[in-house]
Write a protein that binds this DNA or RNA. Sequence first.
DNA 1: TTGTACGCGTTATCAG
DNA 2: CTGATAACGCGTACAA
Lengths: 330, 330
Amino acid sequence: MPSIKEVAQLANVSPATVSLVLNGKGNISPETRQRVMDVVHKLGYTRNVRARNLRDQQSRVIGYARANTRPEYNPILEQFTYYLVREIEKQDRHLLLFTSPDDSDVAPYADMIDGQHVDGFVLSYTVKNDVRFKFLHEANVPFVAFGRSLSPMDELVHWVDVDGRAGMFDATNHLIQKGHERIAIIAWDEESASGQEREEGYLLALQQAGITPRPDFTNRKLNGVENGYLGASQLMSLPNPPTAIVCVSDMIAAGVLRWSVMNHIQLGVVGFDDHPISQFTHPSLSSVRQPVERVAIRIAQLLAKQLDGEDVDGVCELIPPELVVRESSV
Amino acid sequence: MPSIKEVAQLANVSPATVSLVLNGKGNISPETRQRVMDVVHKLGYTRNVRARNLRDQQSRVIGYARANTRPEYNPILEQFTYYLVREIEKQDRHLLLFTSPDDSDVAPYADMIDGQHVDGFVLSYTVKNDVRFKFLHEANVPFVAFGRSLSPMDELVHWVDVDGRAGMFDATNHLIQKGHERIAIIAWDEESASGQEREEGYLLALQQAGITPRPDFTNRKLNGVENGYLGASQLMSLPNPPTAIVCVSDMIAAGVLRWSVMNHIQLGVVGFDDHPISQFTHPSLSSVRQPVERVAIRIAQLLAKQLDGEDVDGVCELIPPELVVRESSV
DNA sequence: TTGTACGCGTTATCAG
DNA sequence: CTGATAACGCGTACAA
């Protein structure tokens, strides 16, 4: 692996000159420039990124944690990660994956900072009062979150989120338009920031249609197909049961669908995420599609701004999702 | 961020001494050692990993590419990535994600090597005669592949794979035991190494049962639920159509299931991967479960061996998968 | 254009 | 036997 010194020797110039040529800086005569470039090509020289980063006191690496508390898999985050990497590479940065035993554990983040492995972070799976927001903000480490903490910290930090309230409002409203009046929801536990948003959209749509929400129509479950099945069976054994169910995720919705097919009871169902399999469940599942690519791109851009020192505090963006209507809600 | 120099000054020793203490090397008196450690703790000093890596000529980072030619998502690889990161962290290494326009494009790999971002690679989505094998082997860069190339290169490099032949043999044999005689397969294109293995298992099981394979019973599709649907409709319009279909992936199998439900035709179906949704399709899907965690752990270990210089050439491992029987094949 | 110092930790060499 | 000095890895910025 040739170094800048070898190039300098062969080109009869100083290492400094080579550096300037490589970076298009300084006043270098065309001949010298040419001579240097020739040697660079002949040797197949490529700059040692690590040396440069050491000097610049940066790593040009972004950290992104995968929590292991959620073995259920998440196609949204998988896509998100892909788009994120792609956008970050445009900035000549890279994405480093690390694990976190728990989303509310800041220790792995501290380790990454102390080891100076990363210049900043992307967070996902945010929860209410997410401790990472406070920790990273106080540590003065750049980061952008996919999702909010629904706390005052949201004013101070950078986040991009899908407007779950609008999405669930649309979903619920769509069912109302189809004639449903008894609409239930299967939501996550109250700790989930995104879950809470989606619930609010549901309630809002009911209110606007003059329907009084029934407390027993809110069923809380962890994510998962089996939990959707369970939730549906619980909701449908209520007196005066719902005729339609909105779900905070397609996994849950798939379980609801499964229950309705098994029990031969027609049910309006709308999910959330537009999971790849939604178009092929039976019946196919109406869902709220998250604009994952847009989110990833914006996050990468906001992070780059911070990293490049253009910081303005508290930039945030809410991106509206899109309702995709299929057989489960016609 | 305190440096080793500051620690040295406060402890009244030289930076070298601090380094020796930190690494438990050299002959340092207990008092000096204690004095240094006290200052280290007082300052909250952590070693600058980048400086160390520059000196050691390594990055302690493993590269892993995500190809963007396959927007369909893959829960197996998502899990795989997670387990991989976890195991690699035990080695004080990290996983760097990068994108590749195409699995058979080595340019992104070359870039990562030239930039000295990584010490080695993990490959997945291997294809027949995978060009990356040859390239990385010749470049003398350590790597371990999840999957083979079904070429002579397989003898020279390191790979770990799930025994798709055994898995598909079991799946097919299971259907034969259930009384099926006309069993078709929906496979991938012939470029896919893992796809070919699985086909062989299918053929093997038929042969062993004395069933002559029908060429028109092999249907090739790209992965995806919609393609499974299409494949099923094509196979089922053949004269003397199959009574059962094995599929190289659960995505494809889900499409087959969908077709069979829509057309009210009972069909034995077995998929491959044990996708999380398989237990909740209607009917639930029998599938071949990949031991992803074991694969990831072995890959990380084999890579570590190479990186630590214990190289032995051509270590490879075939790990048997497990058939999970559900409603679609009873 | 170039010499030189610097970023930071490690290790071989050398002095006490 | 203990610990300091200096060179090294490599690229970049500033003064000359």
